[in-house]
Design a protein around this nucleic acid. Structure first.
Lengths: 242, 242
DNA sequence: CGGAAATTTGACAACCTTCAAGAGGAGTGG
DNA sequence: CCACTCCTCTTGAAGGTTGTCAAATTTCCG
């Protein structure tokens, strides 16, 4: 758990030895999430923050008529509800996409750490800012791009984020993306039928495949062109050449 | 300028006398923005933060084919590019919607202030988190709601944010919303024709009007129902009864 | 093996976008 | 002062895309 958090923060922020010592003393407890199980619900006032240790979790809001809109997905090392440190009431829920493992870190311990080790606070602040940058990109993607480009951009982002952390060069490869087509529809704002046809159309380009929760990228450059994908907004400190 | 910033932060954060003294010493310089003038462009690396003093500014991204997608709008007291304090490269641009006045506060001065007065840093952090909450809501709105509800929700948000700051109770009233219908289309992800017909449809409900840059709310309760608007996500500390 | 869930396909209607053109103002120059 | 241009708003019509409805097929899980 401590290693996961440290590595994530060090992607974009410099931590000194004392920061890391303090980080490693953070108390936490593990929790397993079943597929579809909520870790937090809309309206909750959590007193601990979530760190994704393994698997994927998704954030979503529920609409008046019961439909869901997914907002973002998070993988190992992400802090999907860091904003709850300062905004007491959750405006969205968080659930496991497939089975996942999370660590719960008491807010109190994190806030104490911020006082003693401001650099850690800034690193987590930066984390929340990257989160917001991804939201901005999602607004643009879901509002302005046609289905094919929209889906391609989404796949690019998921692949890039999964890969940026685990490997350096990955023109070709796979990553986990354990969603159903219905859930992808609730992510991109398209009907399930359109999702299905769009994914098939993408497959026919030969740039990617997506089956049984695994995304396979066959031609990164062309997929990125289709999705108009420019990873600048992910603000990885030293942009990785994929 | 100092009063504008102080009042904004005090909406949601407690500042003590020393915090305010330090805040009032922040250096800045004023800048006038003409209608449509960019304050910052995508790719810039600004060394000063923007505080909106008067008027409205909008953030937008430009797509591959030149189309624009507006992301958010900001009024007096907002810090629309606070994220640039820690994410050096701008992933979007900021421009005046109608003539506006902004104050530029050097990043260096703000960062120094954070060290001496951590409460101010937390207040601005909270500001960026509310920003992100608004983004989440925008993702949901633009992805999942039909045109009528989508436009209604947008108008509700703009009205609520404008009103939350300036007056307590405003079931009925007006606020400035200096956009063209084309720009609203680039905000909500709808064509200009659909915007026009949707606004007319909203007018016919008798709940609102929008003309010459002025939004007039005639029946807040019904407009909020049409837009499925719940202001919880704006995280105003003591929710105002509108 | 059987039932449920997910994916896939087809058909049709509805909605939205695009294209086109007209109306109403604001600003400029003759 | 009027004509002209530009911009925004508005309206109409046509065509295409997407959503809805429905059902078949495949996959997953107990």
């Amino acid at each position: 758990m401590h290693a996961v958090l440290r590595q994530k923060l060090q992607i974009h922020s410099a931590l000194d030895a004392d920061d890391i010592v303090a980080l490693n003393k953070l108390p936490y407890h593990d929790r397993a999430l079943a597929d579809g199980e909520d870790a937090i619900r809309q309206g909750d006032r959590p007193d601990a923050a979530i760190l994704v240790v393994e698997g994927m979790v998704g954030r979503y809001q529920t609409l008046a008529d019961g439909r869901r809109q997914f907002i973002s997905y998070h993988i190992t090392g992400d802090l999907p509800d860091a904003q709850a440190l300062f905004l007491p009431e959750m405006d969205h829920a968080i659930r496991g996409m497939g089975p996942a493992r999370i660590a719960l870190i008491p807010h109190e311990a994190i806030l104490t750490l911020f006082v003693r080790r401001p650099a850690v606070g800034l690193a987590i602040w930066r984390e929340t800012l990257i989160d917001a940058a991804i939201f901005r990109s999602t607004i643009v993607n879901n509002s302005a791009r046609a289905p094919l480009a929209r889906a391609a951009h989404f796949f690019c982002e998921q692949y890039y984020r999964a890969r940026a952390r685990f490997s350096r060069r990955g023109e070709v490869g796979t990553c986990s993306l354990p969603l159903s087509q219905a859930q992808l529809g609730d992510t991109l704002g398209m009907s399930i039928v359109t999702v299905n046809r769009t994914v098939q159309q993408l497959r026919r380009t030969g740039t990617m495949d997506w089956n049984e929760g695994v995304l396979q990228v066959k031609n990164w450059a062309r997929l990125a062109v289709i999705g108009e994908f420019d990873p600048a907004y992910l603000h990885v400190r030293a942009p990785r050449r994929l």
